[in-house]
Design a protein around this nucleic acid. Sequence first.
DNA 1: CTGTTAGCGCTTTCAA
DNA 2: TTGAAAGCGCTAACAG
Lengths: 346, 346
Amino acid sequence: MRKSVTILDIAKVVNVSPATVSRVLSNSNYPVSAELRRKIKSAAKELNYTPNLLGRQLKTNNSMTIGIIIPSISNPFYSSIVLGVEEIARANSYQVLLCNSHQNVNLEKQFLQTMLEKQVKGVIISSISAEKNFLRQFSDKGICVISIDQHREGEDIYQINYDYRKGGFMAANHFVECGHTKIAFVTAPLDRPSRIHMFRGFRDALRESRILFKDCYLQISETQESTNYNSNFEFDNGKRLARQLMELSERPTAVLACNDLTALGFIYELNLLGIRVPDDVSVIGFDNIDFSNISMPPLTTVDHPKYEMGKFSCSMLFQVLNGENVNVTEIVLQPKLVIRSSVRVL
Amino acid sequence: MRKSVTILDIAKVVNVSPATVSRVLSNSNYPVSAELRRKIKSAAKELNYTPNLLGRQLKTNNSMTIGIIIPSISNPFYSSIVLGVEEIARANSYQVLLCNSHQNVNLEKQFLQTMLEKQVKGVIISSISAEKNFLRQFSDKGICVISIDQHREGEDIYQINYDYRKGGFMAANHFVECGHTKIAFVTAPLDRPSRIHMFRGFRDALRESRILFKDCYLQISETQESTNYNSNFEFDNGKRLARQLMELSERPTAVLACNDLTALGFIYELNLLGIRVPDDVSVIGFDNIDFSNISMPPLTTVDHPKYEMGKFSCSMLFQVLNGENVNVTEIVLQPKLVIRSSVRVL
DNA sequence: CTGTTAGCGCTTTCAA
DNA sequence: TTGAAAGCGCTAACAG
């Protein structure tokens, strides 16, 4: 590969200053005569010029790149978010660096640091960290961070959240309305705001209905550390939870899972164990991922507007980056019950 | 935000030259006295120094970033690939720019151009372009491009491919072995190598078995241009294909779908239409995505090692970038039949 | 309208 | 083992 051609080469050929070349080739609106414009452009084409954006970036201190940090792209919940983010980024001529944190706080921190060093001006993150002001530390260093999905309590930072409590509440209530009283929540460990709030909503709904069921909470027992987190992970959790359920002395008739993937695995295993859904056990999932209606029976679930969350967060990011007045610093998206066929009416 | 601190600031504080500071802070193995090393490091910490990688990148002409271009991240087939790519990239301290081409050739071209300008040294791409030497043009400009999944005929370029023909062949043969004779292929348009080869294998298998069925090929009729390509897209294709199937004068008893998502949509719609799988119609999918075994019945499918494809391609990329001798320029991954419960034995 | 010039922050010869 | 200095490719203030 030969030496690459720069604006200097073009300047020489056309016999103008590099400044003029820069002005036309960078699409600045600085006045340049039509004559020179034409010449410079044709010379650029002639020489097969490819601008080196690193030069511009160093000068303007703008990398035209944003970052997104999520647990795992192979989880369809997050890939929907990323799709939305990338769409808005592209509309703004930005590109996105994808970081899978694999639920690892140290990795999250490392990614954030790298974003800082690469002069990424904005990052969208669904953080698993419980550390107080964890994200604030980074936004203080001059990077705009938008937290999504996982509510950051009392942290002064831009947030796009989702009302998990209400979602859990609605789901539990739906069970109650359908006549269920033995209602359980099956979940991965409550190690993050989303699940905690979901469970609270669930519990509150049961309390309000004066329903008490001793085994109303079932958590995955073995914590499987997986460096290679993929969608099977949650699905397998669901399968294991189904097996745990079998060992209960008194079995619930209705089960809310912490997400659709878990619900799907749960139903899958139940089928294998000869337990019918919804005849024997009713199930509600959470998130309404695309796949939630391909199970048999189609899954009743609580909708989460993930794609929109991706778009909103990225739009907000650009508003901030463009110095627009952003007076709303937190948005809370709303749940919606999607009734399909996995809940039996008693 | 105040002016950021640079190695110059540190140099002043410690009273050494910026060169020395650079040498210790960039982890070069250049000899620097332990004394200065310590002082410089502590000063860096003191001043809360964050290196600006743009400076280094411009100088060394290495952006420590690779790109991946795929149709859509919301398709679980591609998100598995991306997961593998990101894993290897991270192991090499690189990061990955994610580009969704939405099956749009112009977008692909645009992304490739941007990669070039951003001085990305390597890109992995599942290209939908049929243009001859499309990728070669870019690799000639000094970027290492690795083509994955879509075989590039006669193009001198690194490729990680998959034997779609054999996969199609195996699937069709399985139907034959199970006693089927009315066998059909349902698919989105054959606009790319993967589907074309898959269909060829399918057809060849039937020919060898001297099976001839007039409606053995069913293609999605309305081409739905979607700027917002998500996993529902393929799923909906499957649903529509199921409806098209109903209108056939003579219905096949066995159907191979061009991918699992399509198969899943196909089965879903069949269920709604009161047609039982596999009792009335047997179905084989393709790719073996995580979700292919959550359908009812669990889908028999042809495995595609997508995650490994992502890892292999990225490993190959780094071999090339590191100047290692890469004498194998094409790898072809092999299909494997995964028998579950969606095929009836006649 | 056009050119001169001084960097952006960093690395890397080369000389000491 | 350290420092001086040039320069990666580009932009932008300033002067003309």
